[in-house]
């Protein structure tokens, strides 16, 4: 693999992990606009443990992810009292506060950034992203995914049927935060450098963009969305200056035509049972 291709694929792997971190709470109806903050927690925690306490990476990375998840849990309990647009805004504020805190934390370099000594190669990153995808595919086949959909579609009915709505919401939020922290920790160890400015609100918002573009109805949506958003601007590189403008026009037109996202349940059903499709349409 050429260096360029590897570089692009590594970015793709990070985007896929971030996309699933957004997807999990979104599947329960929560828009998390602060995912970058949780990535920062994972990145800084893992970097700090390996740098200062000489922890091995295999221990530091899960601890970083765990800390991000724990923060999600602790903050999710009060923040998830709000919902809808209020929740989105609370997570937005949260992301900003977390990255501002790291920006001012001198023990991890403050605004100058924080060099990280231990290195993870591209293959390690690919493996991590694959592990996240596999975990999500597994989760999508468990009752947990069913609960998420139930809570998203109608919390009242879910509550009446004995699903702990608050529990599921907090779990989805915290689990998403842990996935973000996991991705963030790998980010720190792959690039050997973290700076708080990277984990800004645009990173959070663009990640949401991948997920909604790919579609939230199925577990494949975030993967497809992240792949598209990573690869398409590279393919448009020929028209260098115009590529982001063209790309933006494409997003606008696409979302106007297909607001439910690229991959939907009906699309998957159609692909799976192509021969039987007509008879089921008739019924």
């Amino acid at each position: 693999m050429s260096g360029y291709l590897t570089g692009v694929l590594v970015v793709l792997a990070f985007n896929v992990m971030a996309a699933y971190a957004v997807y999990l709470p979104l599947a329960a109806g929560q828009l998390n606009l602060g995912i970058a903050g949780f990535m920062a927690i994972g990145a800084y925690a893992s970097a700090f443990l390996t740098n200062e306490y000489a922890w091995p990476m295999w221990a530091a990375i899960p601890v970083g992810a765990g800390l991000a998840g724990l923060t999600g849990l602790l903050i999710g309990i009060p923040v998830l009292r709000t919902h809808g647009i209020y929740l989105a805004m609370a997570t937005f504020a949260l992301g900003q506060v977390i990255s501002a805190l790291f920006l001012n934390l001198e023990v991890v370099g403050g605004a100058a950034g924080y060099p990280v000594s231990d290195y993870v190669g591209p293959n390690g990153v690919f493996l991590a992203a694959a592990a996240v995808v596999v975990l999500m595919l597994y989760l999508s086949r468990t009752r947990f995914a069913l609960y998420l959909t139930a809570v998203k579609s109608d919390p009242t009915v879910a509550d009446l049927l004995g699903v702990s709505v608050r529990g599921i919401q907090v779990a989805a939020f915290a689990l998403g935060a842990a996935v973000a922290g996991f991705g963030g920790a790998f980010y720190a160890h792959h690039y050997n450098f973290v700076e708080a400015q990277h984990f800004n609100v645009l990173l959070s918002v663009f990640t949401v963009l991948y997920v909604l573009f790919g579609g939230t109805q199925t577990v494949w949506g975030p993967l497809v969305g992240a792949a598209f958003f990573t690869l398409a601007p590279e393919l448009l590189r020929a028209s260098d200056q115009w590529r982001y403008a063209l790309f933006a026009v494409f997003i606008i037109v696409f979302m106007a035509i297909r607001p439910q996202g690229l991959v939907t349940t009906s699309l998957l059903r159609f692909a799976r049972r192509k021969p039987a499709a007509e008879s089921s349409e008739a019924a």
Binding site: V208, L212, T216, W242, Y244, A245, I251, I252, M255, P259
Partner: peptide
């Protein structure tokens, strides 16, 4: 960004309005 999304998920118009932000900036 707004009109085609009526009746869908409330998050969706956010994506296309963000698309406009990227477009205008670029």
């Amino acid at each position: 960004a707004y009109r085609p999304m009526q009746g869908g998920d409330p998050e969706v118009p956010l994506v296309s309005s963000l698309g406009f932000l990227v477009l205008l900036e670029n």
